[in-house]
């Protein structure tokens, strides 16, 4: 009996000590997932998610304190990619798949105030004071900062449409629509 108790005690001591040492030696600094998530974010620090920048949002995601659907510019595609990354089974069906949008300036309404220029995180709006502004489509991320800043409502977000260069074959309808 004493023998058995001794063996258990010994095992406990040895394993406890071993685990303590292992915990010290194999400690992982920081959270590698957060860095990987940050890679996936748009990187414009637009702030629409409510976090101060993409890196803070990534940290919140990694900690599980933010929903994967937090990033409007990333849209549904980013949300499902994040869900995959974090191993979360998430119902994104309610999330509108708005596709990608880009800003468009109504020339009639633009007064050339340059407010949008200053807000754009990617310098995608060109123009100067008292001149009608234009959007560089390729640089626009659809973050809507400019639309918010515009005092005359001259900026709207428009879905990016297919062109001959960007069109590709749609996926065949999942079999047997009948």
């Amino acid at each position: 009996m004493i023998e058995a108790m001794g063996i258990l005690l010994g095992l406990g001591v040895a394993l406890g000590g071993g685990l303590g040492v292992a915990a010290r030696l194999l400690k992982v600094e920081g959270n590698p997932v957060a860095a990987e998530i940050e890679e996936m974010m748009p990187g414009t620090n637009c702030g629409q998610c409510g976090h101060p920048g993409c890196s803070a949002a990534a940290a919140a995601l990694a900690a599980g304190s933010a929903p994967v659907s937090l990033c409007p510019p990333g849209g549904k595609a980013l949300a499902s990619a994040l869900a995959d990354k974090l191993g979360i089974v998430s119902d994104l069906s309610g999330m509108a798949d708005r596709g990608s949008v880009i800003a468009f300036v109504f020339e009639d309404l633009c007064i050339g105030c340059t407010k949008c220029l200053k807000r754009c995180p990617t310098d995608a709006i060109v123009g100067a004071s008292r001149q009608i502004h234009g959007v560089v489509d390729d640089a626009c991320t659809g973050c809507e900062q400019c639309a918010e800043a515009c005092p005359t409502g001259a900026i709207v977000m428009r879905p990016e449409t297919d062109t001959l260069a960007t069109w590709h074959w749609p996926k065949p309808a999942d079999r047997l629509a009948a």
């Binding site: 406990g12 001591v13 000590g17 685990l19 303590g20 040492v21 010290r24």
Partner: peptide, 8 residues
């Protein structure tokens, strides 16, 4: 680790 060994 010593404390942990003692605890377990």
């Amino acid at each position: 680790p010593l404390y942990l060994a003692f605890l377990l």
